[in-house]
């Protein structure tokens, strides 16, 4: 529970992030420049934090779902639904707080639907959430009546492109939500209970954990995160685009969780790791855009970088590293005395 332990847990992810940022700096001169203009910070690093917001928000909920050995494929579609709901409400003259509360409510409702299918009907999460993934975009289109529903309400636009203390508002949102989720799950036993479900749901139930209620809550949390991401995405372009909002972002969110060092098999989880994972993915995206390669290479480059990160993280290469580290006569890469004491202090 101490800081060093958390830091140690996300150290590989932090290193990966720093390496990619260094690569970006090498590719694009001025990558690290940050200027202050029009009351907000301005620069590529800020862009990464800002553009990565939807995936970071989704990754918070996704981490919890994956920790229960589940998966939520519907988050992209829920984003589209919630964006559409927010745009429809605000354009029919509802007040801003009412719009946001109702939209968040719709997100939670979507999550409860997924959770009910998983917790009470025992449907496998990948299928249960696939239903809403497919149907959700249709629902969103029904709400927008097939057009991009645009709005011009300063309050709602602020959620997407306003700034507080010079930082874009979406950044504040995901950082605060990430910290809040970590506090809720780590200062109470909730985190432990979620991990227990992921490791063995039956055993957890027998041990007296209300697994169904917890599963419902976890999927609802994922729906809530998707709702926030949906509002951010719609507010960013001042319109709800039912066809494209959140398209394929469920996959980026899952990737962020995995790159963040979490296992799809459930159990131990780290929200901080997933958030860094989301930033890694966005850094790769932004780096590709800045590099000026022809767009045909975008996905290939992204895939190559992700493969390298996953290979370095894989259990097989951990064994290899350990083997290299412990070879007699080799001291390079061996933990320094200082690191050792830290490690011991952590225990």
């Amino acid at each position: 529970m101490t800081m060093p332990a958390t830091l140690k847990r996300v150290l590989p992810q932090l290193i990966a992030l720093l390496v990619i940022l260094a690569l970006n700096t090498a590719i694009a001169p001025g990558f690290l420049d940050i200027a202050y203009a029009n009351g907000r910070l301005y620069g590529s690093l800020i862009d990464i934090l800002n553009r990565g917001a939807p995936v970071a928000l989704l990754a918070i909920g996704m981490t919890l779902v994956i920790a229960t050995r589940g998966i939520d494929l519907s988050v992209g579609a829920v984003m589209a639904i919630c964006g559409a709901v927010a745009a429809a409400l605000i354009t029919s003259d509802h007040s801003l707080p009412a719009t946001i509360l109702m939209t968040l409510g719709v997100g939670i409702l979507c999550g409860l639907w997924n959770g009910a299918l998983v917790a009470f009907l025992g449907i496998q999460p990948i299928i249960a959430t696939l239903i809403l993934m497919v149907a959700g975009r249709g629902i969103a289109q029904l709400i927008t009546e097939g057009v991009i529903l645009t709005f011009n309400v300063p309050g709602l636009i602020f959620v997407g492109s306003g700034s507080v203390f010079g930082l874009p508002f979406p950044v504040i949102l995901w950082v605060v939500l990430g910290i809040a989720a970590t506090l809720i799950f780590r200062t109470t036993a909730l985190g432990l209970l979620v991990e227990a479900i992921g490791i063995n749901r039956r055993a957890s139930a027998l041990a007296g954990i209300g697994t169904s209620a917890l599963l419902l809550a976890v999927y609802a949390a994922s729906g809530l995160c998707a709702a926030v991401a949906g509002i951010v995405a719609a507010a960013d372009i001042r319109g709800a685009d039912a066809n494209n909002a959140g398209l394929w972002l469920e996959l980026d969110a899952i990737l962020a969780v995995v790159v963040g060092g979490n296992s799809l098999m459930g159990g131990r989880f780290s929200i901080a790791g997933s958030l860094i994972g989301a930033m890694i993915i966005q850094s790769v995206n932004t780096g590709i855009l800045l590099a000026g390669f022809p767009p045909e290479f975008n996905l290939v480059i992204k895939a190559a970088i992700i493969v390298v990160i996953l290979v370095v993280q894989s259990p097989a290469s951990h064994t290899l590293f350990a083997f290299v580290k412990n070879r007699p006569g080799r001291t390079i890469g061996a933990p320094t005395p200082a690191a050792k004491t830290k490690e011991e202090a952590a225990r």
Binding site: A28, D47, I237, N244, L289, L290
Partner: peptide
């Protein structure tokens, strides 16, 4: 920019920086 507003905005941001 994948024909979408979101990507159009994101890619333009990077063009402006570059």
């Amino acid at each position: 920019g994948d024909f979408t507003r979101t990507k159009g905005k994101e890619v333009m941001e990077s063009f402006l920086k570059a």
